[in-house]
């Protein structure tokens, strides 16, 4: 993967990371272009979540370079969010004992531009009308799908250049998954780059522009979503 034109927003070079002696990801290189939806696919234990954790600053990488928006990525979570990467973590991780509105406010509590915050709040309520209906309810009382919507909305409240999602379809009914995928498409259309980690390969491939397939810590395949969908043998081999 060589240097492309300057519309590459995220560039990862020879990234490795692990837990103790175990290498969870091994010498990974890939890139994401501005405005693109990119999926990272793979079976359990392929290293997808570790990769996202490295990008969000939750896990320290052992080697490699990460460049975001033409600058090296800082080390701490909060600096990374400030630079414009939001993560929607695996399992939603919303704040159960805070109301929906408070959850959203946490998403933007590093920002001081009250006027834009109000606009963004309207924007996420437009995307997810259910959240506005339930804005004064505790986050823990929402259904799984609503919690996922809240997690995405909370991520958007930081006004990210790139939104990373870790398994947003986990444990949700198929109809809700479709809704969420549609919303992700419209988020991308409004200019936010999306990096999506998924096990639900078919859904993710239908949505994304490009996809990478990971297997035991390495990237084994890169192609457009359509091509990968058509390639039944590979689908079967890596994604089941």
């Amino acid at each position: 993967m060589m240097d492309r034109s300057d519309d590459v927003i995220l560039k990862v070079d020879h990234l490795s990371a692990g837990y103790g002696g175990i290498r969870a990801i091994d010498d990974i290189s890939f890139y994401v272009k501005r405005g693109e939806i990119v999926s990272m696919l793979g079976a359990n234990g392929a290293g997808k979540s570790t990769l996202l954790k490295c990008l969000s600053g939750e896990h320290k990488r052992s080697a490699g370079e990460i460049t975001f928006d033409a600058q090296p990525l800082p080390g701490h979570c909060h600096q990374i969010v400030e630079r414009g990467i939001s993560i929607v973590p695996e399992g939603r991780q919303i704040f159960y004992k805070l109301t929906v509105l408070e959850n959203l406010r946490v998403g933007c509590c590093q920002r001081k531009d009250q006027e834009n915050i109000r606009k963004d709040l309207e924007m996420v309520y437009d995307l997810f009308p259910r959240l506005e209906e339930r804005k004064s309810q505790f986050g823990g009382l929402l259904s799984g799908g609503e919690q996922q919507m809240l997690a995405i909305a909370r991520g958007l409240m930081a006004r990210p250049k790139m939104l990373m999602l870790d398994e947003p379809s986990l444990g949700l009914a198929p109809i809700i998954v479709n809704q969420i995928m549609d919303t992700l498409r419209s988020i991308a259309q409004s200019g936010t780059t999306i990096l999506l980690v998924e096990q639900n390969a078919v859904k993710a491939l239908n949505l994304c522009d490009r996809a990478y397939v990971m297997n035991v810590g390495r990237i084994v395949l890169e192609d457009s979503g359509k091509e990968l969908l058509a390639n039944e043998k590979l689908m079967h081999a890596y994604l089941g």
Binding site: V81, Y96, G107, G155
Partner: peptide, 10 residues
């Protein structure tokens, strides 16, 4: 409420 999520939200 959730230290990990708080950190993830900047």
């Amino acid at each position: 409420e959730n230290e990990v999520a708080a950190a993830a939200n900047g």
